[in-house]
């Protein structure tokens, strides 16, 4: 079973990468692009077969290592 953990900078934390990408898109002529935020997608192959248990495990991993809760938040998707 696979868990997909998406890690994003928290709202309000400046994202210089997102800002630079937004600027570059503007100079390339893409209009109507608002705020751009950059995050990480981490795919985990899990031996666990119970979706709820897999989610709990992935959330634990997110809190302990995958995200820095000072500046980041994360979501877990089980597929």
């Amino acid at each position: 079973m696979k868990a997909i953990v998406t890690v994003m900078l928290k709202n309000g934390v400046l994202d210089p990468q997102g800002k630079a990408i937004g600027h570059a898109l503007g100079t390339l002529g893409f209009e109507g692009v608002g705020e751009v935020r950059v995050g990480k997608r981490i795919e985990l192959e899990l031996a666990e077969t119970d979706p709820a248990a897999a989610r709990r495990a992935a959330e634990e991993m997110g809190r302990k290592l995958l995200a820095n809760m000072v500046i980041e938040s994360f979501t877990v998707e089980i597929v």
Partner: peptide
Amino acid sequence: LPGALLRNAGL
């Protein structure tokens, strides 16, 4: 220590 170190502003 509190806080975190982000990517340099100029990337």
